[in-house]
Design a protein around this nucleic acid. Structure first.
Lengths: 211, 211
DNA sequence: CAGCGACGGTACGGTTGCGTCCCGACGTGT
DNA sequence: ACACGTCGGGACGCAACCGTACCGTCGCTG
C-alpha cells in the first residue's frame, strides 16, 4: 500500500531532474532529494533507474493528443503545429525530449519505449492526418508516409528543439501552408503518369511575370 | 612541448567516449583509459571536461564542408543532402551530434560553441545556398532565411538523427525535390504586393481537379 | 657532457552515488 | 486496546571519479 502522494512527488522530481541534468547524469539520490523522500521509497516502486525513467516517461508521453479533423490538410497541419509547438515549448519537454532521443541512440530499451509511446502520438497522428488527406483526395494514394512525416515533423522539431530560434505566432500558419503545399505537390494524385511531374508548370502558373 | 601523439590519442578517445556514453556520463578517467594515457596528460592540456569537449568538438565541427554550386536549387539541395546524410550516418557523429544538441539546451557554453561552429557549416551553407537561389531568381529576395533553413535541414535531420529510419539512396533526391518545391512555393518572388499571399491561388492552379 | 625544465605515470584524499539493511512510526484489523 | 504488517528514513559498505601532488625520465640547452 504505497502512498500515492509520494509516488506523485517522485514522478515530478524525475521529470525535473531529467530536464535539469539529463538521463546520463540522473541519480536516484538527486531524485529523492528533490522529491523530499528517501531512496528506499524509490527502490520500493521501481527496480532501477532505467525502469523508473521508462515508466514515468512513457506514461507521460502516452497521453495521446486529440487531433481535430478540420477537413482540410492545411488547417489540420496548423492545428498539429500548434499542438506540437505548445508541447515543445514546455520547458520540461523541451529539454527531456531531445535528451531522451539522443539517449535512445545508445540504449535500445529507451528507443523501444519511446517508439512505442510516440507511435501513438506522432506516427499515427501523422498517419491519420495524411490518411485523411488521401481520402479527401488532397494527396495521392501512393503517398510515401515516411517522407510525409519527415516533412511535417522535421522543420518544426528542428526549429523548436534543435536550433531553438524564436518562432513567432504568425510563423506557424505560414509553415503549415508551406508544408501543406509541398505535400500536395509532392504527393498529388496522379492525374498524369509523367515520370517527372515536379513543379515547373506550377512555378510558371504562380509567377506569370517570369523569374 | 606536448607530445602530439598523445594529444591525438586523447582527441580520438574523447570522440569515442562521447559517442559511447554521452557528455553527461563522460569521465576524464574513462577518456584516459581509452586513450591509454594518464589523467595528468589530459589535465595538462585542458583545464576541465567542458573545455576538453568544447575544443575538440568545435575543431572537429569547424572543418567546413565544401558545397558545390551547381547552378540549380534542387541540385544544390541534392548535394547538400548527400553531404549531410554522409555526415549523419557516421557512427560517431550520429550519436555525438544529438547528444551535444540536447546538452546545449542545458549548457550555454556548449550552445554558444555549437552555434559558432555550425554557423560556418550549416547556417552559412544554408545561407549561401539560399542566397544563390535568390540571385538566380528561384527564390524571392525577401525570403525568410530562418524558415528556409528549417525546411532544408529539418526533415533530413529528423529522419537520420531522430527517427533513424532507414533512408534509401533514391529517397535523397526525392526529398531534395520536395524541399526545393516547398522553398520555391514559400519564398517565391513577390509578384504582387498582396498582404496575404499564402498559396490558395496556387493550390488551385496546382490542383485543377479540385480538392 | 652536465644541468635544467617539462613531460607522463602513479598514488592519494575527498566526494558522490549505488544498492541494501535495519529501525522506528503509522495504520489496520480483530 | 493490542499486535501485526508495511512503510519511510537513516546509515552502511562499496565503487567510481575528481583534481592534485609527487616522482622518475626524457630531451633540450649551454
Amino acid at each position: 500500500m504505497l502512498r500515492g502522494e509520494i509516488t506523485t512527488a517522485i514522478r515530478g522530481a524525475v521529470m525535473q531532474e531529467l530536464a535539469a541534468v539529463g538521463y546520463g547524469r540522473l541519480s536516484i539520490e538527486a531524485v529523492a532529494r528533490r522529491a523530499g523522500v528517501s531512496k528506499t521509497a524509490i527502490y520500493r516502486r521501481w527496480s532501477s533507474k532505467l525502469e523508473l525513467v521508462l515508466e514515468i516517461v512513457s506514461s507521460a508521453a502516452g497521453r495521446s493528443l486529440p487531433l481535430p479533423d478540420t477537413g482540410d490538410l492545411r488547417t489540420d497541419l496548423e492545428m498539429l503545429f500548434l499542438i506540437m509547438s505548445r508541447a515543445l515549448r514546455h520547458p520540461l519537454a523541451a529539454q527531456i525530449i531531445p535528451d531522451l532521443l539522443a539517449e535512445a541512440a545508445r540504449n535500445p530499451r529507451i528507443a523501444q519505449t519511446l517508439e512505442d509511446a510516440l507511435r501513438v502520438n506522432q506516427r499515427d497522428v501523422g498517419g491519420q492526418l495524411i490518411g485523411r488527406a488521401i481520402e479527401r483526395g488532397e494527396l495521392g494514394p501512393d503517398t510515401d508516409l515516411d517522407l510525409a512525416v519527415d516533412l511535417i515533423v522535421g522543420p518544426l522539431y528542428w526549429r523548436l528543439a534543435v536550433s531553438r530560434a524564436p518562432l513567432s505566432a504568425e510563423d506557424l500558419p505560414r509553415l503549415a501552408a508551406v508544408v501543406a503545399t509541398a505535400l500536395e505537390v509532392a504527393c498529388q494524385p496522379a492525374v498524369r503518369t509523367e515520370p517527372d511531374v515536379h513543379l515547373s508548370p506550377m512555378t510558371v502558373a504562380i509567377d506569370p511575370i517570369g523569374s
